[in-house]
Design a protein around this nucleic acid. Structure first.
Lengths: 224, 224
DNA sequence: TTATTAATGATAGTAATGCTATCACGAAAA
DNA sequence: TTTTCGTGATAGCATTACTATCATTAATAA
């Protein structure tokens, strides 16, 4: 059985659905690689078009601008993460164990998912680590928020919140702790690689240290 | 006695020291206001020049580009914060109380500091909240890091780490917890204002809730 | 005093960016 | 078989992100 995972994206994000055409999928795939390579600031639709052997104008038919493309990519990632978390936790009884699993998924470098051939999750993880926050750190957050652009992020946090509440219904900051957890996982991984003196982790060790830190942080916060 | 606070900045940040001239100070002051107003992406040296009645070329004599200007502004803020923390904690005996004070300072909306007439800390706080992370989330972090550009950030975190270690010498993640604390203070404040469903805070309440959340988070993490 | 230099302003120019518009072509759908 | 749809090709345009040159003025040194 060849089952492809299809994530339904907010229609406000694109002008033409990139999942539906070959060119669209090439735009997604290569923009991830190029943003990783050049950084979001130096990435342009012109460069992307050259890379995929298309034209700037064609790219603009899919996305209004490169920031919307970033939003698309990042949103896709949050949705995929939520899906992954759901799959890996729904057979776990103990909410504590489930939360542990969530932290492991958030804090660990990701492997490529064969179910989504046009996206390289491994690369996407790095893009989100570096560029993810730029999705909402803009002048038009409010407008984007009204367009429900951040629903996947909220949805992911809601799911984590729910687990936290199961662990300790009296804990008063389940939402904030969820968003803190998600952001901290990214930031500590980024610091570890790029600003190591801001962390206690060794660049050459694996992700286990970050995961342990996050676990200790979260579990001591919610322990009764 | 009229004592002006002067923060010594890393010389790699600028081409000409903006603190030393009237034009330089106008550049700093108005860039803070304009970045707040337009957002960093839409902010340009051209617009800044028009605003301060100067020219683009003159602005380029002070800063290589707008990202360096952002680095300057953000670094200035971290240095000023460290100074503020030092002043407000060095008469406190109990390290726990000192840490509490630090959290209060980090999590609370700032008032203007009369000692630095060319900077409006109140505005700067907001700029750092929204644009601060962009200072290091770039392709050239590594190069900037080597130029010691992030020393003020590291220095701030070191100071917080030291207090954490005093509270609990066995706690293994003092650095990571410090950077997490600093980032989380900004992010939760940002979310509270712009993506409220990612937090447990009320936009219309003051900063006390965020501070309480951060206190609970930090103190439960380091409690023995 | 005069000569020098330093900081700014004025102006120009250039490559790249961030778009928008138009037209033609081929493939697919009606 | 006609229409529509997606793409490519090309053009154009205002803005951005600089760099360069020259004149002016103020501060400084000889």
């Amino acid at each position: 059985m060849d089952l492809a995972l299809q994530i339904r994206m907010n229609e406000n994000l694109y002008l033409r659905n990139p999942e539906e055409t070959e060119l669209g999928r090439r735009i997604i795939r290569h923009s991830i690689l190029m943003i990783l390579d050049l950084g979001f600031e130096a990435f342009t639709f012109k460069k992307l078009a050259v890379e995929i052997g298309s034209t700037e104008a064609s790219t603009y038919r899919y996305f209004e601008n490169k920031h919307r493309l970033l939003l698309y990519i990042v949103s896709w990632y949050w949705s995929w993460l939520e899906y992954k978390i759901t799959v890996h936790t729904n057979n776990i009884e103990d909410p504590m164990e489930r939360l542990k699993k969530v932290i492991l998924i958030l804090g660990t470098y990701v492997e490529d998912d064969i179910n989504t051939p046009h996206v390289d999750e491994d690369q996407l993880f790095k893009v989100v680590m570096v560029e993810g926050a730029k999705a909402f750190l803009t002048r038009h957050v409010d407008a984007d928020y009204k367009q429900k652009i951040f629903k996947p992020y909220k949805s992911l946090c809601d799911r984590i919140s729910a687990i936290i509440c199961e662990c300790n219904p009296e804990y008063a900051y389940a939402r904030s702790l969820s968003s803190t957890l998600v952001e901290t996982a990214n930031f500590q991984n980024f610091f570890k690689r790029n600003l190591p003196s801001l962390t206690d982790f060794d660049k050459d060790h694996g992700d286990a240290e970050v995961v342990k830190y996050l676990e200790q942080l979260v579990f001591s916060a919610i322990s009764k």
